[in-house]
């Protein structure tokens, strides 16, 4: 995935789309936008930095996982098998990007309790427990079901500024690969050797 920081306006559409797609409970943000301020007066820059799981080629989370619940698929997407995860959270601690979330149980958005407050909430609870589980770690999986059906992830589809581009990084002709070359795309914390699959195109 390639994210153009010049285009991102920090509208949090990606966060909302992700929540709608995966029914994540309160406190779980597979996709989020962190506001960053840099520089010194009078040249201060405020920039939104969309964050999600980097689906690294050499994922730290996969290395440290004691159960093998974190797996890298042949297409490069890193997934958590919730039936195997024990909720030790070593992966959350080891992940340099803060992309992993632990949910002890599903909670209703409006009441904050484990009991769904409406039929809609009951539907969300069922979907969340189907996708993940209580007491385990979850994270962005590039909407793996959509990706395997040839569709783009929900955050990419929802971005009103078209700041996100999803494609095959192993294909040098893909739009994503081309953007990385032309706009000098960079990875976050490449010094850890994790080889993130999310590239950022600089805002300036």
């Amino acid at each position: 995935m390639v994210i153009d920081l010049k285009r991102c306006v920090s509208c949090h559409s990606c966060t909302a789309a992700c929540k709608a797609e995966h029914s994540t409970p309160p406190g779980v943000f597979w996709a989020k936008v962190v506001r960053v301020e840099s520089g010194r007066y009078p040249t201060v820059v405020r920039q939104g930095l969309p964050l999600l799981c980097m689906n690294c080629k050499e994922p730290e989370c996969e290395k440290v996982c004691p159960t093998g619940a974190t797996k890298k698929r042949p297409n490069g997407i890193v997934v958590v098998v919730s039936d195997i995860c024990v909720g030790c959270r070593y992966c959350s601690v080891a992940c340099p990007y803060g992309a992993r979330y632990f949910a002890e149980d599903w909670k209703d958005y409006f009441t904050g309790t484990k009991e769904p407050s409406s039929i809609y909430a009951e539907h969300l609870r069922k979907r969340w427990l189907e996708e993940s589980d209580r007491g385990v770690v979850s994270k962005c999986n590039f909407c793996v079901d959509r990706a395997e059906a040839g569709r783009t992830p929900a955050c990419v589809e929802a971005c009103p500024c078209e700041a996100r581009t999803f494609g095959d990084l192993d294909d040098p002709e893909s739009e994503a690969s081309q953007l990385i070359v032309k706009r000098r795309g960079m990875q976050l914390h490449s010094e850890y050797g994790t080889e993130p699959s999310v590239y950022y195109l600089p805002a300036r």
């Binding site: 159960t67 995860c85 024990v86 909720g87 030790c88 632990f102 002890e104 589980d133 770690v137």
Partner: peptide
Amino acid sequence: YLGQPARFYRL
């Protein structure tokens, strides 16, 4: 501490 203690053997 574990979120899913019944699966501890997997550790």
